[in-house]
Amino acid sequence: MAGELAFEQPLVELRKKIDELKQFGQEKGIDFGDEISRLEERYVELQQDIYTNVTPAQKMHLARHHQRPTTLDLIPYVFSDFVELHGDRMYGDDMAIVAGIARFGGRPVTVIGHQRGKDTKDNIARFFGSPHPEGYRKAQRLMKQAEKFGRPVVTFIDTKGAYPGNTAEERGQSEAIARSMMDMAMLKVPVICIVIGEGGSGGAIAVGVGNRVLMLENAIYSVISPNGAASILWKDASKADQAAEAMKITAPDLLDFKVIEEVIPEPRGGAHRDYEATGLAIREALERHLGEIGGLDAQTLIAQRYEKFRRMGQYASGPALPNS
């Protein structure tokens, strides 16, 4: 194992102890069999304990794990024959969003997803997965293309948010995000969105208007990063863990709010432990959901998508209040 997070430390320590005992026994020719099996039992219990009670803050750290599979890591396990397509035909090719055509069980689909870098150099080229306007416009172009050829659209959401830079503002960040949402709402083909890591703010919802929105078990989704919220609310960005609890950002929370339809289970310890298992779990869920909506006509798809987002939000309405 590698890349353990703080909350996994008890497991790391216990494993170390077991390994030491085994080695010591071998060296000295002493049989610690009973002791070792007792510790192994304890390990399983501890694992159960730690991984069934993952707190929102711990999930936030899992969602941001540097080894967590990215869109390009997962595509080979979910689709076949992926061909990446490039550029928005207006300004450039934003590498923070990758997109292309692939096959899903024989059927061609358009795949679009945020792409974080795998190392520092890659991350710099991809702006740490934070798109510029040309990223959303590439997505818009390829969604229209999917519509033309009757292909379903699948998006993977994994971004801290839109890139907060002057160049992004100059090129119309606001318009690009707004239009992406409006275009997605009106798409005549099935759209399924999957939050695979961090779903951050406008950069996430820009490719998140689907007939179905699914979320990996340890993924998070929120209007502002918990760090950002903490610095605004409590003037202290280090209170991100506290904000993560208050903001209800986990998959089960979003299921309760009816923002998503399903939580896709991850391998124990998180998606970074097993890319293949994660990919296959996504594949299974996608197959089911696409099976349910893949045959619907354009009008039904648009109406269904509209109804879904139309219902979102919680407010009160009653008799008119006198003071306004």
């Binding site: 709402a185 009106m186 209007v223 923002v259 979102m312």
Partner: peptide
């Protein structure tokens, strides 16, 4: 901007209003 005290629900209002404008434009 979005009202962060309503977290994801406020983010979804962006999609909701944009979708409504899509219908209106249609």
């Amino acid at each position: 901007g979005a009202r962060m005290q309503e977290s994801i629900l406020s983010l979804m209002q962006m999609a909701k209003t944009s979708a409504a404008l899509g219908q209106f434009a249609e």
